[in-house]
Design a protein around this nucleic acid. Structure first.
Length: 281
DNA sequence: CTCCTGTCCTGCCGGC
DNA sequence: TGCCGGCAGGACAGGA
């Protein structure tokens, strides 16, 4: 479900509720998700204040007083919801982790497919943590540019669509926004990653930044089941140009819908790619 | 190294 | 109506 814009939407929603408040109670309902919950999760969090929330790629980071960091990953189906009063909250199926905050409100982590992750690291250790130390640049950050992308793609013969999903190349782009960005940049998803010209790399970087920024501004997309921390959906799926739009006219080269060229759905690396044959070269 | 496939898990949708 | 196969936004391991 969640790519960078959805995770950023979650972070923004949680921030005002969590920042500055201590965690008073930690409850887990199973041993873990994709990986086990840390043994010392309860000990590390109870009585400790959340200083601020940040995001790296598709991870939400809770920076705790004392230098600890709790890392949340939503996997495919994870949701983090704000509950105003944990004392009254009735648990739902797939509620795996519940955090009660100072004042009685709380955060519920629900994840049907259990591809999500929760783990601990620290300000000192995060840069060397296996999940982060070889991660590519943040696509909305200053360190991401045409030349940087081109350098990271150098020598790769894998299709550019597949390369964009590799978090070591650029971190935070997922299956939806990879298709959207390539369409926006007019680049074929089949094009060998290492063969992009400088201009194409520049265009692609701009397209990635643009599509991610616009999605964040819309509160993320809600294909299937993405909901924000308040339980409401995001709206960006209404803005998809190609994703989940097989057989529809290409809004880029045939905005009037009168021509026959339509969005194609194909499979690359076992995952759906949507693109326009006519304007992506 | 790169790259390709399979796997984790549940829910939902379409076809019969 | 019910059953079954296929597919779903991510990440990683293992093998070629």
């Amino acid at each position: 479900m969640p790519e960078l814009p959805e995770v950023e939407t979650v972070r923004r929603g949680l921030s005002p509720f969590m920042e500055g408040r201590s965690i008073t109670h930690v409850k887990t309902n199973r041993e873990g998700l994709r990986i086990p919950f840390p043994d010392n999760l309860k000990a590390a969090l109870e009585g400790v204040r959340v200083e601020r929330l940040s995001r790296r790629a598709k991870y939400v980071l809770a920076h705790m007083s004392g230098g600890g960091i709790v890392v949340f990953h939503l996997g495919m189906s994870g949701q983090m919801r704000i509950e105003p009063d944990m004392a009254l909250y009735v648990e739902k199926k797939h509620d795996h982790l519940l955090l009660t905050l100072e004042g009685g409100s709380g955060i519920v982590f629900n994840d049907p497919r259990r591809f999500g992750m929760v783990f601990l690291t620290s300000e000192a250790g995060i840069s060397q943590h296996p999940s982060f130390h070889l991660m590519g640049p943040e696509p909305l950050g200053n360190e991401f540019s045409g030349p940087v992308l081109r350098e990271r793609l150098k020598g790769k013969r894998t299709p550019i669509k597949i390369a964009l999903l590799d978090q070591h190349i650029v971190a935070g782009v997922g299956n939806i926004y990879a298709s959207e960005a390539l369409h926006d940049a007019g680049i074929s998803p089949f094009k060998a990653a290492g063969s992009l010209t400088a201009k194409q790399a520049e265009n692609l970087v701009q397209a990635i930044r643009d599509v991610l920024s616009r999605a964040i501004a819309s509160g993320g997309s809600s294909l299937k089941d993405f909901i924000k921390v308040d339980g409401k959906p995001g709206y960006f799926q209404h803005s998809f140009a190609v994703y989940d739009r097989a057989d529809q006219p290409c809004p880029r080269c045939h905005p009037d819908g009168k021509r026959k060229n339509t969005i194609q759905k194909i499979v690359q690396g076992g995952r759906a790619t949507y693109y326009c044959k006519s304007c992506q070269k």
